[in-house]
């Protein structure tokens, strides 16, 4: 897992393969989770990984709605998705998700999950995001608001079995 306080890497400059805008309303969390999980599935992740990636995005959105926008329901959140692959025409090796908002700037160094041994309601979101994603980078957007870059590699256990190409008798 990467150092979550870093301000690099730069956000991807290529056109996202998927980009959605939602209003900062909890009612849209469910549909967003379904989109994220379905996209991750198409990029080669197994069901467990798809659920975890959707959970990480859900937690990030919850934090923006609750803390970034103070539960205001008329604000925007943008979610962009790229496959991780090199070269670009290769099979996807993972997923990169960038979540952006227009909320107040927060020092990325100050975004820390709470001590997991401290059992209390709340404060689990950042811990969960860091736990399930390979790369977690919080940045301040120059134009205002925050950017969260999430990446996760497909592992060998995620790989789907090779389709059976034998001709049935």
């Amino acid at each position: 897992m990467s150092d979550t306080s870093q301000t690099h890497p730069a956000p991807p400059t290529t056109t996202p393969h998927v980009r959605v805008q939602i209003l900062s309303q909890p009612r849209y969390l469910s549909g967003t989770r379904e989109l994220i999980a379905a996209t991750a599935r198409r990029l080669g992740f197994d069901e467990t990984a798809c659920s975890q990636i959707a959970l990480a995005v859900d937690e990030a959105l919850c934090n923006i709605i609750r803390h970034g926008y103070d539960k205001a329901e008329d604000q925007h959140i943008w979610i962009s998705i790229w496959p991780l692959n090199e070269p670009p025409d290769a099979e996807p090796e993972g997923i990169r998700i960038v979540i952006e908002d227009n909320a107040k700037h927060i020092d990325p160094e100050a975004i820390k999950g709470r001590d997991i041994e401290d059992i209390k309601p709340g404060g689990l979101g950042v811990y969960i995001i860091r736990n399930v994603m390979d790369e977690v980078v919080f940045q301040q957007r120059p134009e205002g608001g925050m950017r969260l870059i999430l990446s996760k590699q497909v592992t060998t256990t995620d790989q789907k079995p090779t389709p059976d190409t034998t001709t049935p008798n």
């Binding site: 969390l29 059992i119 689990l124």
Partner: peptide, 15 residues
């Protein structure tokens, strides 16, 4: 499905 909002509710219940 449950996210940390639901978990927090159950942690409060436990307390």
């Amino acid at each position: 499905y449950m996210d940390s909002s639901g978990v927090a509710t159950l942690v409060e219940a436990m307390q």
